[in-house]
Each structure stands twice: as structure tokens, then as C-alpha cells.
Design a protein around this nucleic acid. Sequence first.
DNA 1: TTCCAGGGGTAGA
DNA 2: TCTACCCATGGA
Length: 322
Amino acid sequence: MSSPRPGEAGTFGAAVRLALRPEAPFDFAATAYSHGWVVLAPNEWEGETETVRRVHRLEGGTVVLLEMRASPETDGGGESGPGVEVTVRAPEALGPTERKEIRAAVTRMFRLDEELSEFYALCEERGGRWERVPRGLGRLLRSPTLFEDVVKTILTTNVQWGGTKRMARELVRAYGDPYPEDPDRRAFPAPEAIAADSPEAFGAAVGLGYRAPYVHEVAARVASGELDLEGLAESDLPTTELKRELLAIKGVGPYAAATLLMLVGRYDELAVDSVFREFVSERYFGGERPGDAEARAVYEPWGRWKYLAYWFDLWAGLEESL
DNA sequence: TTCCAGGGGTAGA
DNA sequence: TCTACCCATGGA
């Protein structure tokens, strides 16, 4: 598999650079590597150059390669501050509509329009290790669409992380549109591509186990227009109603719903899984296993920022154990 | 070989 | 609302 070098002007079609700048503080590498999403296909993380690479299918069907890295503090346009520099490699020149679509996709991935100042203020009040968070941490990477996030979240259920990576890889390999310059690289499947196959054929093509019918069903519902996930992602429904909508998706239970709420920017709910239970038990209960309600209560003081509080508590704990 | 994972659906109480 | 049971798959 060939790999265009970061910063190198591609010989394939047209290479375009876009600069996106969120309100400070913003930390590109911390955002990119904020959780496992960065290594789930079609995302790739190149540690040496701190680059996120991803094949991306535009709405019109054009398949491009996106390379995202930290932008310099200043650029030729006179803007300053950290941000995301996107190099787009495309088969032909991109029009304004396609550039706008790419900007929207990258903005969603890196949550460039998310407001975290209230959470940062709580971290400042706590002090100590929490003071690191307001330096640009807290934006947890997500996918360009809620559809991709729903599918990937279903792939995290009842399986070890290595299995999730394998399943995402298989899904992209079997149903993703190829990047013309390097057909081994593919985009995340469009719901229509999955829905075009029968559930049986889909299940046989990808090793998702009992998750296959769930993924097929959500793809079919999105493809038919019955389920408007992207509308749901942008809705201002109260969190409880949004959670109810997410739980109505087969394959999404309490853990997955809480993860998806996080992915749409609602941090009220905690995703209680084996990692959460183990961490809270060790850190706050001396190794004893509390009930889920008692474990959840640990983060109650964080109000609507519980998920982020748990997440950085977990990462700080991991760092201490190294 | 057995266990279990970054759980969830269903049936039955 | 709670519990029991079952669900594919692959790594340990």
C-alpha cells in the first residue's frame, strides 16, 4: 500500500490545502488521539508526523484522501492560532461545494465548533492534574457522520478492542468505495452500499458476528430515509429524548447510547462498561466492586460534564500506572 | 478447552 | 424495572 508523504504535493489529480481554526485552546494531537476512533478504519494515525489520514467519500460519490495535521500558528492569510491543516488529494479539482463538505466533515471530526469553557472552568476549580485539560483537551474525536459513529459504537460492544479494529477493517474492505489512486484504501461504507445487499449476504461478507444484522438494519433505515441520524446529531432535543431515540436503534443499549451521546456532544451520561467498572473499583473503592449506581455517583458532581470527567480521570490513571 | 470482551435483545416475572 | 438466558467471534 503506497502512502503519500505528508506535505508532499501529490501527483494524483489535484491537491488542495484547507486551514480550519477553532477558538483556542485547541490541541490537534490530543484531539486526534483522544480515544480509539483514530485507529478505526478508514482512519489511520501516523505517529511520527502526527497525521490523521482517511479516505473519504463525498456526497456526490467522489472519493478523496484527507490528510489532517496541526496547522502552524500563523498562515499566509494572517490568521493565527492552532488549528487543523487538511490536504485533500482528489482525482480532479474540487468545487466550492465539495470544499465546504470537507470543511464540515473535518469540523465535525475534531469538534472545532464545540464550546467547552464551562467544563474547563470546572477543571480549573479542581486544580492539580485537572489543570492540564483546559489546554486544549476535551474534544474527543468522532466521525464525519453519526451513521459511522453508530456503526463503530455497535462494533465496540461485547468484544475486545482488537476485535473492534478487525471488524471496522473488514467492513471498510468489503463495502467501502476505493480511493482511485490506491484502491487498497477505502472510505467508510455509505449506508446505501450496505443496504444494497441482503442481511444474509452482508453477514457472510463481514465477520461481525451477531452484530451484523444490527449494522445492516441501521444502514437500511438510514438509506431508506426512515432514520435521519444526521438530523438527530444536530437536534436540540433534551438529552433524555435523544437517548430514547438512540436506544430505539437495535444493537444500541445503555452503554452504546451513552457513548453516542458523548459523540454528539452530550456528556450527561456515563458509558458503563467493563473498563468503567474496573477503573472506578480500583481508584475509588479499593478494588471492591460497587454497584453501577454507586459507581456512577462518583462523577455526579460534574453535572452535565460527567463523561468527560470520567474520561480524563481514566487517562490520568493510566498515565500514573505507566 | 474454556473464558470473556469497551453489551444487547428477548422473554418472563 | 429487573433477571436469566442466549447471542457470534476471536484473543488470551
